[in-house]
Computed example of a mutant assay.
Amino acid sequence: MTPTPDHVLLVDDDPEIRQLTAKYLEQNSIQCSTAANSHEMRRMLQMQRVDLLVLDVMMPGEDGLTICRNLRADGSAYAQLPILMLTARTDDADRILGLEMGADDYLGKPFVPRELLARIRAILRRSRALPANLQTTNSPNRWRFSGYTLDALSRQVRNPDGILLVLTSGEYRVLQVLLNHANKVLSREQLLELTQGRSGDAFDRSIDLLISRLRLRLGEPARRLGLIKTVRSEGYVLATEVQAE
């Protein structure tokens, strides 16, 4: 049986970019649908399965950053949809803002189609499984920690009141890695490697942003307990007892 190709939805107000990019991705075994704005995007999300969203930042009306923020906050089935942002701006502040809004990766315009393809494939790999060095034959199906529960089978996290928490794929991976290494300080470089399979440079703030967002998602009980602690000049640690089932 032929496997179902990955499906990417490209949202960009430039018709030439939509046409050329979709053609290139289709030639490389990735199904690509396109939308010119947020209205068309939402209509397509309701009509068909989408594995990854490619969002242009600079669009008239609802821009890419706003779309990303709203998707992450609405609690729908697409709250964890992997998102790659595109922008013609070169300011690092835009990249940081995109990551803060919940984007998984960022690519500047003009871009080389081959690099876009590589980034799409890398994001999809990361969104579906932990890296090989975290995949063990006896990996637990459920973790309990300070009243919270993470269910690896349903990929759901609930707080001490039993309320379902909406986490992005990146936030979920960071939490799962911290649980696997509870009470052990992990550096930013180790967290990047374990969650994204890559190393970072001195200015890479993606882990800091993910930790900050994860703390917000976990809410007041986690803040009160100091669940995720920052260790100066070293990294982060999940400071609690963890029960694996």
Rank of each mutant, 00 (worst) to 15 (best):
D161V: 04
L150K: 00
S206M: 14
Q156L: 13
N159L: 09
S199D: 09
K184T: 15
R217V: 14
T149S: 09
I211Q: 01
R215K: 15
G162R: 03
G147V: 10
R188W: 01
V177W: 03
Q156T: 12
G147E: 06
L153T: 09
L167W: 11
L210D: 04
G162W: 13
L214V: 08
D161Y: 07
S187N: 06
R155V: 06
Q196P: 02
L216V: 12
A182F: 05
G197L: 00
L150G: 02
G170K: 00
S187E: 07
I207Y: 02
T195A: 09
D208K: 12
R198K: 14
A202S: 10
I211S: 02
V174E: 02
D161E: 13
N180L: 15
L192A: 02
R217H: 11
V185M: 07
L179C: 14
N159Q: 04
L214M: 11
L175W: 09
L216P: 04
V177H: 04
R155M: 12
L218W: 04
R158V: 15
Q190G: 01
G219H: 10
G147L: 03
G170Q: 07
A152M: 15
V174S: 01
L186D: 01
G197T: 04
A182Q: 14
G200Y: 04
V157G: 01
Q176I: 01
P160Y: 08
D201S: 11
D208L: 12
V166N: 15
P221R: 00
E171V: 05
V177D: 00
G162A: 02
D201K: 03
Q196Y: 11
Q196W: 10
L186M: 15
N159K: 04
L153N: 03
S154K: 13
T168W: 03
G200F: 05
Q190S: 07
Q176G: 00
R213E: 14
A202P: 05
R173Q: 13
I207H: 09
L216S: 12
G170E: 06
V185S: 09
L164T: 05
L194S: 04
T195R: 11
D204M: 06
K184W: 03
L194A: 06
S154F: 10
E171Q: 14
T195C: 15
